[in-house]
Nucleic acid binder design. Structure first.
Length: 607
RNA sequence: GCCGACUUAGCUUAGCUGGUAGAGCAUCUGUCUUGUAAACAGAAGGUCGGAGGUUCGACUCCUCUAGUCGGCACCA
């Protein structure tokens, strides 16, 4: 039995005060302590393999662990990972963590050529002392529990190197980050590797290519996606759905120009606070400056302002599938997830202050209903607040922010929903509730959002006539339900792994005549009947073997494949094969029509 | 934007230390006329991301540039 394990089920773990306790190996804490030790062993290995290397943070998190480092001559390269991994595993066998309570001056003297370690030590020091874990030749600030013995580290893999800013600030130098993962058992490691592989198979960029949904061609512009017919069909289906939903919910859908006089964006505050993300204005040569819009709010404000509004008009809900352009940094672009041209399922509700809570709840209800229709279940609520240390990034005064943030929290508490707060994530004009989802590769992204805005109504001088006959200022609630069409389709592609539910599938039915000559007419008549019922159907009458066509229907993830031959023609029937199933089911045409129409009508719901 | 890796036919890709490119799928043309995951044969398709440079000679080495990917930063 390895000495690191008290018994098979427990490990010794040291805490930041140097005390040692036994905890369950198969607990979250156990895994965390394992990763923490792995990160320090990696530090020690880097220190050994690369003379004069400076060491940044070593972090254990839910994905594994990573260590930042910096070296003058050459960077740690991906080719060196396996050597580094061997060194680490060799060290692990006899590794034992020692607790050191060092004098600050002594600790600093030891790392005098390493500004990163020095800074970490200084930050952690208390009363001239600093608590550290020593692993091999490396001492690191004690932060979090750590497994004491290294002999349990056998199933470890260094995964990749990447750049990362020191302290996460882009104004700081960039260090090299080595990522790794480690588990107590080979099975767990294998499973983790499989999960990472599986995640890549869900990637919308891979599937988008396989299913011919969209493309981005650098020759015609990075971040400017082209929607192929199949992708366009998915998008159009969602657009029709969401417009109908919103109209039913009291929204008035509009169309507004993608170009607008730059002055409007000066008034809105975008020019001041959002310019870096905007395309440069077009100088028309006669004094007019046009801007391609990065957001739709100023456009909808024009709709509001076009008439005198009364309290009777409120809440006034303006919505649009608004195309916008943002100059995203080249390194941020990614398939349909981050693009430079996007169409937002945008909406702006103009309300009186006392209507905020009800409207907020109404919007959130709409979002939750829509999520059910799309079977979106994995999300979290993020209350995005102003960064109190960085107020110049935002428009407005403390009072407005305090009030709107308080209102938003109260609205969330009313609804009794779990949420977490994130400072610095607010829009420049106000706080927001973001609904966060994860991409296939595990990156966090905002899907839906509800934002409070006291600023733009003020800056644009919006008003309505109250019961008292006097002018009042409305509040704007910005909201996106399915977010941008680009990101939403990317997300759905990933969660469905390209196997779109029937209502969204670009091709819902493939009809395969056994012999085109003998059964082609029957197939085409059947297809016409389905088309008349708005079903998206393709008769595969190419000169190919049946098996070939079946295979293609499966690889293209078509929900229903119908084979029609002598038997079917005789009985006015179809042989039905569903995507992902091998079983075939023979039924009458009418029975099939009923089945597929019911399927389509149920959206993606799993009832 | 930053760090690193990568970029060969529509797609997926082979091409060791320099001697001007091969394959599978898709496409087209024939033959075959098909009962639940790939019929057979032939043809066509590449200025090896772009621009410079080194060299007798560059897909291969160097520089610059664009894009993609993994991260970071930023964000719907």
């Amino acid at each position: 039995m390895p000495k690191g394990e008290i018994n098979m089920a427990q490990i010794a773990v040291m805490s930041v005060d140097g005390s040692v306790k036994k905890i369950d190996r198969d607990s979250e804490e156990g895994l965390q302590a394992l990763r923490k030790l792995a990160s320090l062993l990696l530090k020690d290995s880097l220190h050994q393999e690369f003379k004069g290397i400076r060491l940044g943070e070593s972090v254990a998190d839910e994905d594994g662990f990573h260590v930042d480092s910096d070296k003058d001559d050459q960077q740690v390269s991906a080719d060196e990972l396996s050597a580094l991994q061997d060194a680490l595993l060799a060290k692990a066998k006899d590794a034992k963590v020692e607790f050191v309570e060092a004098d600050l001056d002594d600790a600093l003297a030891e790392v005098k050529d390493d500004p990163y370690s020095s800074e970490l030590i200084k930050e952690a020091a208390k009363d001239g002392k600093v608590a550290m874990y020593q692993v091999g030749d490396v001492k690191a600030v004690a932060d979090g529990d750590i497994m004491v013995y290294g002999d349990a580290i056998k199933h470890l893999k260094l995964l990749s190197v990447a750049g990362a800013y020191w302290k996460g600030m882009s104004s700081n130098p960039m260090l090299q980050r080595v990522y790794g993962t480690v588990f107590f058992s080979k099975d767990a490691l294998d499973e983790d590797m499989k999960k990472r592989q599986e995640a890549r198979e869900h990637d919308h960029r891979v599937i988008g290519n396989q299913l011919d949904l969209f493309f981005v061609d650098p020759k015609v512009g990075a971040g400017l996606p082209y929607w192929m017919p199949k992708g366009a069909t998915i998008r159009r289906t969602i657009e029709r759905y969401i417009i109908d939903r919103e109209v039913a919910d009291g929204y008035e859908h509009v169309y507004t120009p993608v170009l607008m006089n730059l002055d409007a964006y000066k008034t809105s505050g975008h020019w001041e606070h959002y310019r870096d993300d905007m395309f440069p204005p077009m100088d028309m040569g006669d004094g007019e400056m046009l801007e391609i819009r990065p957001m739709n709010c100023p456009s909808h404000i024009q709709i509001y302002k076009h008439h005198i509004r009364s309290y009777r008009d409120l809440p006034m809900r303006i919505a649009e599938l608004g195309m916008m352009h943002r100059y995203e940094k080249s390194g941020a672009l990614s398939g349909l997830q981050r693009v430079r041209e996007m169409t937002l399922n945008d909406g702006h509700t103009f309300v009186a202050v006392d209507q905020i809570r009800d409207e907020f709840a109404k919007i959130l209800n709409l979002i939750m209903d829509v999520y059910k229709d799309f079977d979106i279940t994995d999300y979290s609520f993020r209350l995005s607040l102003r960064d109190p240390k960085n107020k110049e990034k935002y428009y407005g005064n403390d009072e407005m922010w305090d009030e709107s943030q308080k209102l938003l929290k109260a609205a969330m508490d009313d609804l009794n929903l779990d949420y977490y707060e994130a400072e610095g994530e607010a829009a420049f004009y106000g706080p927001k509730l973001d609904i966060q989802t994860k991409t296939a590769l595990g990156n966090d992204e905002t899907m839906s959002t509800i934002q409070l805005d006291f600023m733009q109504p003020d800056r644009f001088g919006l008003s309505y006539v109250g019961k008292d006959g006097k002018e009042h200022m409305p509040v704007m609630i910005h909201r996106g339900i399915v977010g941008t069409m680009e990101r939403f389709v990317a997300y759905l592609t990933e969660i469905y792994k390209g196997a779109f539910p029937t209502w969204l599938a670009p091709e819902q039915v493939h009809i395969i005549p056994v012999s085109d000559e003998k059964h082609g007419d029957y197939a085409k008549q059947l297809a016409d009947k389905m088309k008349a019922a708005q079903i998206r159907v393709v008769v595969d009458d190419r000169n190919e073997k049946m098996g070939y066509k079946i295979r293609e229907a499966q690889t293209q993830k078509v929900p229903y494949t119908l084979v029609v031959g002598d038997d079917e023609v005789k009985d006015n029937a179809v042989s039905v094969r569903k995507y992902g199933e091998e079983a075939q089911n023979s039924m009458s045409q009418d029975a099939f029509m009923n089945e597929i129409l019911a399927d389509i009508a149920s959206y993606s719901r799993k009832n």
